[in-house]
Design a protein around this nucleic acid. Structure first.
Length: 273
DNA sequence: CCCAAGTCCTGGTTGC
DNA sequence: TGCAACCAGGACTTGG
């Protein structure tokens, strides 16, 4: 699942490959995955536009284009962005031909088995729904005071809070389980029950775990690959996600599985309180 | 048939 | 009572 570190890995690679590249042609579109405009606009408005900046907010990739246009992409659950893929795929949803700064042509392919991914083409700013997102969980301007204020008074489970993109943007199911293990907090704790000292720990561990994910080029637990089709390394460093039935690396007790916020959740019932 | 899961949407509940 | 905030759960999607 592409979460913040996976999207950042892709962003960095695309930034190197596509900054100042120009869209030449749209070769494939999947209309059902388009929002804020229709397929005709993507086909007709994108060619000729040059990529000026590649940004990221949470799990969203933002291509800032010439003339105030923005291309916003979300990889959903199984989305992949590949540059000049060697193989064919039945799950290619979008394909764009670009001319790079170096004068070469390349193809940017958006594959997505599940079609949970989204493409938005807008004018004057990125996709409107980004306005509802909280600050970037890794690099955003937020601190323990912000976190404590947002946690306060909530009865929903702490894990549901971490997954709520309106609070902090970028945490998904894998990193939520990892952050909770490292903080020794139970995913089931009511968000509002987290104490001041625990908020401080959480505020440190959130960017730390996401930063580890970025350092190891993302987590390829299942589908994630980078723009060259290579897997990340972070899955080797997982301590909690997917570990139900296995022993906790800290206390030796057995991880249990629960469903929290509709998501499979693995945690140590002894040391996560 | 169930499971995986990110986001949107809906409908019900809570609390001021 | 009214209203907004909050919260749970379903829909979407397709391959294992």
């Amino acid at each position: 699942m592409p979460e913040l570190p996976e999207v950042e890995t892709v962003r960095r690679q695309l930034e190197a490959a596509l900054t100042e590249a120009r869209f030449l042609a749209v070769e494939t579109v999947e209309p059902s995955m388009i929002r804020d405009c229709d397929a005709d606009e993507v086909v007709h408005c994108l060619p000729g536009k040059r990529v000026s900046v590649l940004e990221r907010l949470g799990k969203y990739l933002i291509f800032r284009l010439d003339g105030g246009a923005y291309l916003t992409l979300h990889l959903g659950m199984t989305g992949q962005l590949l540059v000049d893929p060697a193989d064919e795929s039945p799950h290619t949803r979008f394909a764009f031909r670009l001319g790079t700064k170096a004068g070469r042509e390349c193809v940017l392919v958006f594959r997505d088995m599940r079609k949970f991914g989204r493409l938005h083409l807008t004018q004057g700013g990125p996709a409107p729904r980004l306005a509802a997102l909280g600050p970037d969980a890794w690099r955003g301007a937020w601190d323990a005071d912000y976190l404590g204020a947002r946690l306060g008074g909530r009865s929903a489970p702490l894990k549901a809070f971490l997954l709520d993109q309106r609070q902090l943007a970028g945490i998904g199911n894998i990193y939520a389980d990892e952050i909770l293990w490292w903080t020794e907090l139970s995913p089931l704790r009511p968000a509002g029950s987290v104490t001041g000292a625990e908020v401080e720990v959480l505020a440190g561990e959130i960017p730390r775990r996401l930063g580890e994910g970025v350092k190891f080029l993302g987590c390829s637990f299942s589908d994630f690959v980078d723009v060259q089709g290579k897997r990340g390394e972070f899955q080797k460093w997982l301590r909690a996600y997917g570990k139900q039935g296995q022993r906790c690396g800290r206390c030796g007790d057995t991880f249990v599985r629960a469903v929290v916020a509709g998501r499979g959740t693995s945690f140590c019932p002894s040391c996560q309180r």
